[in-house]
Write a protein that binds this DNA or RNA. Structure first.
Ligand code: MN
Ligand code: MN
Ligand code: ZN
Ligand code: ZN
Lengths: 146, 146
DNA sequence: TTTCATATTTGTAATCATTACAGATTTAAT
DNA sequence: ATTAAATCTGTAATGATTACAAATATGAAA
């Protein structure tokens, strides 16, 4: 995947978002790190290079991106929002050991977008996620011999 | 459904939780109001009858109930936890108009408990919910003629 | 190029849900 | 009645997010 600045800039302009320096930085981070980061993670990374970057700007930028469909917010840990540059319909897995969130591709009957109603309720968004122990944490445990 | 105090008391004792007055009140509220309430909703209701009830006790009690499997927490709005006395495997629908959360019975291949792994990740919990406009809000809109 | 209105960024204060904590009260055994 | 443990209460602290106002940058008009 190409994540150069030109591509980032085009993506912003295609959505009618003015490509400021701060916005380019945030979008670049999201494209390079597809880890469903927290605001804190984004801020920590960017502020190392740009010490003047304000955390409020991260919040403002992410909310702007949300409004313009550049990303999705993931409510899963319960304590904070996670941001997802992958806006296609997919599910998630949260590891209770290492806290990692990974994408899950499931053939869910609702993800196809064919079903638009349930019990008379009109569906606009579908959210699905699993909690448990991720593959890496399981393998790590096996090595220790538990 | 029978929701008298005797039944409530038995349910607590069956899980090894000492049936104090405050705990009985909280569990009674949850059984009578299966609306996936917030802490605030529970507190507002109970504190009317028992003005001495502390909000901290509501939190403590709900966390105790969670530990003992008396209820489930639902992470769906992103701003606060909702509590669910229905501990069977089911999904939810959140109305973006009225904020109501209702149970959804879906025949999801994961809810059966047959699938225990995805991509090597061990599944312990399954969470699914939909967002949109609930049946009642849609009908209300139709009446107005929109 | 100056001028000036507008958009953006920044830092701090406020908000809100939740947890931490310590003192008061209740419970239950001696 | 004593007393230790459990529970409850009120307040303070925490942490994520938003509100807000001042500072800065942008971009068009003069
Ligand atoms: Mn994702
Ligand atoms: Mn439910
Ligand atoms: Zn893990
Ligand atoms: Zn509704």
């Amino acid at each position: 995947m190409i994540t150069n600045m030109k591509h980032i800039k085009n993506k912003l302009e295609a959505k009618g978002v003015k490509p400021t320096y701060q916005r380019l930085c945030v979008l670049e981070y999201l494209e390079k790190n597809m880890n469903h980061p927290t605001v804190e993670m984004i801020y920590e990374n960017i502020s190392k290079r740009i010490p003047t970057m304000s955390k409020t700007t991260i919040y403002n930028t992410l909310n702007l991106f949300l409004e313009n469909g550049l990303l999705h917010a993931v409510t899963i840990t319960g304590t904070e929002l996670r941001y997802d540059i992958n806006t296609s319909s997919h599910h998630h897995f949260l590891c209770r050991k290492c806290g990692k969130i990974v994408d899950i591709e499931v053939k869910c009957p609702f993800c196809d977008g064919e079903i638009t109603q349930i019990d008379g309720n009109e569906i606009e968004e579908i959210h699905g996620y699993f909690k448990g122990i991720c593959k890496e944490c399981r393998e790590k445990n096996d090595k220790v011999g538990r």
